[in-house]
Amino acid sequence: MRASANPSLRDRGFSAIQRLPLWGRSLLLLAPAFVWYGVFFLAPLVNMVIISFEESSGYGGPPAPGFHLDSYRQLLNPLYLKVFGVTLRMALLGTVACLLVGYPLAYFLATRASRHKTTLLLLIIVPFWTSFLIRTYAWETILDSDGVLSNILQALGITHGSLNVLYTPTAIFIGILYNYLPLMIFPLYVALDRLDKRLVEASKDLGAGRIATFWQVTLPLTLPGVVTGCLLVFIPLTGEYLIPAILGGSKNLFMGNLIGEQFQGQGASSDWPFGAALGVTVVVLLLIVVNIYLLAFRRVQSVPGQAG
C-alpha cells in the first residue's frame, strides 16, 4: 500500500515542477549557483568598485563615501606602473616556462609511461596535499644562502661561497614553476591522452617523421589543452601574492603584494580606495589579455589546415 502511495506523492511534486515553463525549470535549477555567485562574488566585486572611487581616510581603515578619481590618478605613478609591468612579465614568463617544462612531461605521461602512468600522476599530485604556504616556505629553506641546496653545492665543490638566490626574481621564478606546473600538466595530459593515436600513425604512414608529425598533427590537435593550461597558470599567477612575499623579499613586489599592503598595512601605509582601484585595474587588464588570447586562438583554429 505504501509503495503505491509514495509514487503518487512524488508524482504530484514532479508535476508541479513539470507544469513550469522550460525557462522556469532552468531558473529553479540555476538558483543555488546564482545565489552563491551573487553573494560571494558579485557583491564583493561591486563593493570593491565602489570603494575604489571613495576618498582615503588618510590613516587606514574604511574610507569616507564620495566619488573621486584620486586613486586611479595615483595608479599612473611610474613606481606603480613598474609593478604592473613586472607582474605581467613574470606571469607571462612563468606561463611560458610551465608550458615548456609541462608539455614534454605530459607527453611522456600520456604516451610513454604506460604501466607507470598512475604512479607518476600520483607523484605529481601528492605534494599538493600539503599547504601551498608550507611548500613555499620549504623552498625558502632550500634556497637560503645557508640552506640545504647551498650547503650541498658547496660540499660538492660546484660553487664557492654561499648561494645567493633567495629574495631574487630567480627564487620567485623557481617557486612559480614548482607551484604552477601541475596546473599546466593536467590539461595537457588530458588533451594528449585523448589524442587519437591512429592520427599519429596515419601521419607517419604518409611520410611525416616524428618532428613533422608533432608540428602538424600532435600540437594542433592538443592546442585546446595548451590554451586551457596557459589560462589556468596565467590568471592566478597575475594575482600571485605568497610566492613573491616569501621568496622575493621586500624588493620584488607583485601586484598582489601591493594590493595586500593597501589593506593590511598599519596607519598611513594603508589605503583602501587605492587598493581597490588596483584590484579593479588587474581584473580589467586580465579580461582584456585573456580575450585577446582567446580570439587569437580561435583564429588559429578556424584556419583550415597547415598552409605551406
Binding site: 587519437d196 591512429r198 592520427l199 596515419a202 601521419s203 604512414d205 598533427v217 594542433p220 590537435l221 589546415g305
Partner: peptide
C-alpha cells in the same frame, strides 16, 4: 606503403 585505417584516421583539423 600507405595504409587505409579502419577508422579512416582523417585529420580533423584539416580540410
Amino acid at each position: 606503403v600507405n595504409t587505409v585505417f579502419q577508422s579512416y584516421a582523417l585529420f580533423p583539423h584539416m580540410t
